[in-house]
Design a protein around this nucleic acid. Sequence first.
DNA 1: AAGACGGGGTG
DNA 2: CACCCAGTCTT
Length: 351
Amino acid sequence: MVFSKVLIDWYLKNKRELPWRKTSDPYHIWLSEIMLQQTRIEQGLPYYMHFTSAFPSVFDLAEASQEKVLKLWQGLGYYSRARNLHETAKYVAEDLNGIFPDSYKELKKLKGIGDYTAAAIASICYNEPVAVVDGNVYRVLARFFDIETPINSSAGIKEFKALASELLDEKDPSSFNQASMEFGALQCKPRNPLCETCPLSLGCLALQKNKIQELPVKLKKAKVKKRYFNYLVVFSEENKTLLQQRTGKGIWNGLYEFPLIETEEPVSEGAFPSVEKINEILGEQELSLELHNKKPVVHKLSHQHIYTHFWWVKAEKVGKEGIPVKNVKDYPVPVLIANFLEETALETYSL
DNA sequence: AAGACGGGGTG
DNA sequence: CACCCAGTCTT
């Protein structure tokens, strides 16, 4: 039996019911693919439902404010995806009459659409015979063919793409691609794959050689860095506070947070963050400063650990950038800030 | 070629 | 704690 045939047969019997599998409309497929980049389906699904409800068409998404798009994206991570999504929506709506490009080559030119997503949209929406290679496909192929080339090396990326292209069922690239991924997600799982019931077990080289645990091979990445954040949670006498939008290239670009003083080392016990920086933010005025959490809140990202202290700051005035405390919830914020707001119920302090 | 970029789930 | 997830972009 042919590899692709086994995969597709398995898929037709075992695939999950998912909203984006009921359509081949490129807007919906595109939205789902961007959301699912580096994201589990269970995590992305509720976001997909909210987005398609809030923005039924690419025009609705294009017309929305960046703030609203980021707010709906809040908690999903990799926020550049949301910014690129919005930018591409505006481009498609305004310059392409709302019609997505219909080829792998043209799709890949859009912001936020790389090799994987272009292949996914082209195959699912337009039946173009281009193979997708995502984390699932790497695992399935590395195991079945016993390939030790690191999947995140240049050589590996080329090798696996070429192999997937050879295996691709050109008659039904959509099913083949989705089958490869679904098979990796449900059957050929990273840990404890279901080899006993696997329809490909007879030909699986990793299984024969007892190398399931070792494959695929992946180069290890840099270790996590530590950062020390001090947030100034300001209350003015008019129940206003301060939020700042993050800009630049770092984490959380575009999201809002309380005025931040970052230090190289943790602020030592009993000490305060830099008075100069507080004055920069609030101007010279009478204020009181109180540490909210003695133990730092540790927020863990894949590449950095952030040790956070929140400081209550009572000030007379906050200037014209001040926003009513009750409006804070409308701003897109990192999960670190959202958790703080949730736990402290900020508005109850503003009475 | 190597990093940066989130957050949540799993063993 | 280490690894993974329907990857992409920048340097």
